[in-house]
Design a protein around this nucleic acid. Structure first.
Lengths: 226, 226
DNA sequence: GTATAGGCTTGACAAAAGTCAAACTGGCCG
DNA sequence: CGGCCAGTTTGACTTTTGTCAAGCCTATAC
């Protein structure tokens, strides 16, 4: 682990309130793995052997249907800790992980993590907050899927990316993957995007412009559905 | 709080590993509220004032769309602790809560809960596990919504209710509410149910029989999607 | 520059789910 | 017992979304 990795960990919400010694205790058995785009870190159903922290690159958590369709549950970026719940409970992963862009991943042995967790109250407290934050993201995603149409989901996602107040937005992922994250096919994504032109959303490639954020908020009930 | 309430708390996964003194410390400022079916505990957007523990009755967490449709996120029953994340982070509720069946609810003032949490490592540890468990339920729900059709979702839900091995199942809620939980309209629920007759699911009222669990598991990819 | 591969879009169609309205059911109350 | 009310089912229809196939565009390789 490089010194800038340590700095990255320290800047992360999970570790920012922990003393440096706690971070050391957690990471001294850890190692860094470099993975190319396309690699699969683990498959759903596997028993968890590591807690992962993404040091650089991009990664997606995905579920796969019986027919082989892939749904993206969530994207992760630099600094994110992922699949902590499976590691904490020592239960099989519910999802698979795929590397989207060459990644450096800090691997903390699951057993070691649980040992430290059992002894370190500050880590527990930090983890409670981390899980609570993440819990709310999942709730928002469920409400999104149950209460909004495909174009509304896209609109809300774009508003999230823009910080809620519109302007220029840079799409963080391929449209195909964003479609999966939003629970639709790439074709539906494309059509949803075309429909949003009528609501003042324009753009080509990864650059998107939201002309009238207030109007788009109304379109997708941004403030009602939270 | 009655003495059987205390016993109930002690039997709950969140509190079972905590010493009695911890439970007392947490509940001495708490009180019990009786609410009739139909009552609304709080609305989405409200600032959290209490952590709730359901002592008896039934309750649903719901989100509401701009058009007024209600989606059920989750049902809670005796012993469940709900909306801990909002209380922990002191952020507005993302959902509303409606009482489905006359309920007795233990109300723990949010501020007090956070104070105790800040001082009690065992409570933190228990909460980490509780949140991790719940986190996995939400992931399963998201995968359900993204990867399964309406009849498959119903089939998987029925299998969950039956413990995965079929037989007689008692529906825990009105069909209308189950439809909301599964992300469909009551009409679609009714048709999905009719379709499952071809897969060996029969029943009237709240009693349902799964004739061939193995076959129904295949139908909804129960073991593939987890 | 041209070739090529992948992602993206479009069109025509099919399937799934929602809407609206009407009929049916079952429980509860007078 | 009868009537009422809410929940549920069914039917006809619409809308939304998915599917399949073709074409396009862009980025990179050669």
């Amino acid at each position: 682990m490089r010194s800038d990795d340590r700095a990255l960990l320290k800047s992360t919400p999970l570790f920012s309130d922990l003393p440096a010694t706690a971070i050391d205790r957690l990471t001294y058995t850890a190692f860094v793995q470099n993975l190319p785009a396309g690699a699969v870190l683990f498959q759903q159903g596997d028993q968890p052997e590591f807690l992962y922290i993404l040091l650089s690159g991009r990664v997606a958590l995905t579920g796969r249907s019986a027919e082989g369709d892939e749904a993206v549950i969530e994207f992760f970026r630099r600094g994110d800790v992922f699949i902590a719940p499976a590691v904490i409970l020592d239960l099989p992963y519910l999802m698979s992980t795929r590397v989207l862009q060459d990644a450096r991943i800090l691997m903390i042995p699951a057993e070691h993590f649980r040992d430290v967790l059992a002894r370190d109250p500050a880590l527990n407290a930090a983890l409670v907050r981390e899980l609570a934050r993440h819990w709310r993201l999942l709730i928002r995603q469920i409400k999104d899927l149950k209460l909004r149409t495909a174009p509304q989901r896209l609109a809300a996602y774009l508003l999230d990316l823009s910080g809620g107040h519109g302007g220029n937005v840079l799409l963080p992922e391929e449209r195909k993957l964003m479609a999966g994250r939003l629970g639709m096919t790439p074709e539906s994504f494309s059509r949803a995007f075309a429909q949003l032109a009528a609501e003042g959303v324009t753009g080509r490639g990864r650059n998107v412009v939201i002309a009238d954020a207030a109007h788009l908020r109304g379109f997708c009930a941004y403030d009602d559905i939270l």
